[in-house]
């Protein structure tokens, strides 16, 4: 049961490994970026899972509703920043890939290596 209860974390680990594997094993620069994205997404899930309190709601003060359980807002907020960073990284990465394609005529790692020699 504990294993099932930690379902989120299993998902995090799975995503992390999938992303990391793609990033390392794939030779295509775009696929590498996709891997990086999955990898970063897993971290977002990790933080959000941490911040979630069972039965909790968004931490907004509502008149009259006392003794409400709130989720921890800080990890959520932090992940807003992380998402922004992730988007920026992806955008920069993709623009580099476009430029690489223009300059070398390929986005495959092994062909680039031959070109660079």
């Amino acid at each position: 049961m504990i294993a099932l209860g930690l379902f989120n974390y299993w998902a995090v680990i799975l995503l992390m490994m999938v992303g990391f594997y793609t990033l390392i094993a794939r030779g295509n620069l775009v696929k590498k970026l996709i891997g990086l994205n999955i990898f970063q997404t897993s971290v977002i899930m990790l933080y959000v899972s941490m911040g979630k309190v069972a039965g909790g709601t968004a931490p907004i003060l509502v008149e009259g509703a006392e003794h409400v359980v709130y989720s921890n807002p800080i990890p959520h907020v932090l992940m807003l920043t992380a998402i922004v960073v992730g988007v920026a990284t992806t955008a920069l990465g993709l623009s580099l890939v476009v430029r690489i394609n223009e300059a070398f005529g390929t986005v495959e790692d092994d062909e680039l290596r031959d070109e660079s020699l």
Binding site: F39, T89, F104
Partner: peptide, 26 residues
């Protein structure tokens, strides 16, 4: 033009490093 591939390589490895740091912080 190899500056582009160098920057890309740095981007991938740097982002992995930064993500590891975030995981640690989390």
């Amino acid at each position: 033009r190899r500056a582009l591939t160098a920057a890309y390589q740095y981007l991938i490895m740097g982002s992995v490093g930064a993500t590891f740091i975030v995981i640690g912080i989390g």
